[in-house]
Design a protein around this nucleic acid. Structure first.
Lengths: 143, 143
DNA sequence: CAAATTACTTCGTGCCACGAACAATCACAA
DNA sequence: TTGTGATTGTTCGTGGCACGAAGTAATTTG
C-alpha cells in the first residue's frame, strides 16, 4: 500500500532535494548558493547589474554586495559600458569561468545520477514535462 | 524547432521557480523561507531540536536562532521533555499552526495551478515520477 | 562512579536580502 | 538647449540565516 504523495508535496520535496544538492556542490567548489547562481547566469554573456538582478530576481541593492564579494574574490570584474555610461557590466574572470564550469559539471552529474532512479522512458517523459513547466523561467542554468 | 532542455537544467530551473513561489507565498504570510520550512516540519508533531535539525538539514547551532526568533514572534514554544531532561521540544502555538496552515494552503494552490500547464494524464505521470524521486526526502512538506 | 556521548546554547564571523535615499547619466520634449 | 522624468548603480541601516568552536547539563555506558 504505497500512499501516493500529492503533486504539490512532491514539488516542494524535490525542490528541497535539489536545493541541498546545489548547496553541497557549491560548497565543494567554494561557492555560496547565491554566488553559484550568479556565475551561472553570467556564463552565457556579460550582464549589467539591472539585467542580472532581473534574471536572479533580486533587488539591485542586494546585487551590489553580491558582486562586491565575488569581485573581491576574483571571480568577476566590473566594466563600464561605453554605450551607456550608467551601466556596469559584470563579466566572469578566468577563475570565475573555471569555478562555474566545475560547478556546472558536478551538479549536472549529480542530478543525472538522481534521475537514474527512473526507468529510461519515464525519465524521458519526465524531462519533457519539466521542459514545459519551466518554459519561461530565466536562464539561471543552461545545458 | 523547440530545443529540448536538458533534464538537469530543467530540474534546476524548476527548483528556482518553486523556491521563488515558496518565498513569495511566505512573504504573504509574513514568514521567511526558513521559518515556513520549520513550521511545516512541525505540523505533524512536536520535535526536539536535534530531530528538527536533522529534518531541515541544519546545524543545531543554526536552529537555536531560528527557533529563538520564531518563539519571540509567538509562532512556537519550547517545552522540556520530562522523559529526557536534555531535550527541548518545539511545538507550534495556535498562531503558528494558523500561519503554517495558511501558508500550506496557498502554496499548494499555487503549485497545483502551476501544474495545470500539463494535460491531465501527463500531470498524473509527472506526479508519480516525482514521488519516486523524493522517496527518501524528509517530510518537509506533507499533504 | 568515571568516562564517553548526546542535547542545546552561546559567541563570533560572514553572507544575504531588503527598502530608502542619493548621484550620475540618459532620453525626450518644449 | 534646457528642463524633466526615468533608469542605473551605490550606500547605509536593519534583520535574518548559517556555520563552527567552545561550553554546560543530563544521560548512558563500561
Amino acid at each position: 500500500m504505497k500512499q501516493t504523495l500529492g503533486a504539490a508535496s512532491g514539488l516542494v520535496r524535490l525542490t528541497f532535494l535539489v536545493q541541498n544538492l546545489y548547496a553541497e556542490v557549491g560548497r565543494g567548489c567554494d561557492l555560496t548558493v547565491a554566488q553559484a547562481q550568479m556565475l551561472c547566469a553570467l556564463t552565457e554573456e556579460s550582464l549589467g547589474m539591472a539585467e542580472l538582478s532581473g534574471v536572479l530576481g533580486l533587488e539591485r541593492s542586494s546585487l551590489t554586495g553580491l558582486v562586491d564579494r565575488a569581485e573581491h574574490r576574483g571571480l568577476v570584474v566590473r566594466e563600464g559600458d561605453p554605450r551607456d555610461r550608467r551601466v556596469v557590466k559584470v563579466t566572469l574572470t578566468a577563475a570565475g569561468a573555471d569555478a562555474v564550469h566545475r560547478f556546472h559539471q558536478q551538479l549536472t552529474e549529480r542530478l543525472e545520477q538522481l534521475l537514474e532512479d527512473l526507468p529510461a522512458t519515464e525519465r524521458e517523459r519526465f524531462a519533457r514535462s519539466l521542459g514545459r513547466l519551466v518554459a519561461d523561467v530565466p536562464a539561471v542554468f543552461t545545458d
